[in-house]
Amino acid sequence: MKGVTKLDESSHSKKGRGWLWLLLIPFIATLFPQFYAYDQPTLWGFPFFYWYQLLWVIISAIITWIVYQTTK
């Protein structure tokens, strides 16, 4: 019985591993200031450089949550 559970667990944990690649997106989006080191367009007075990075905190958290749900 124990053996069966183990097998189930390991096949279960392999499920949806492809989704892990999504976790690379935040690195690409934030580690290249070339993409976002601009003043315009501004949003509520925030220059693009500042609101873009703050926005990515949220997007990145959502991506992580999606990956958590799909690989659970």
Partner: peptide
Amino acid sequence: GFYAVPYTIIIYPFVFV
């Protein structure tokens, strides 16, 4: 000084894995 933001963004996908 705002590098603290991308820094604390990319930590978490890393931690997750």
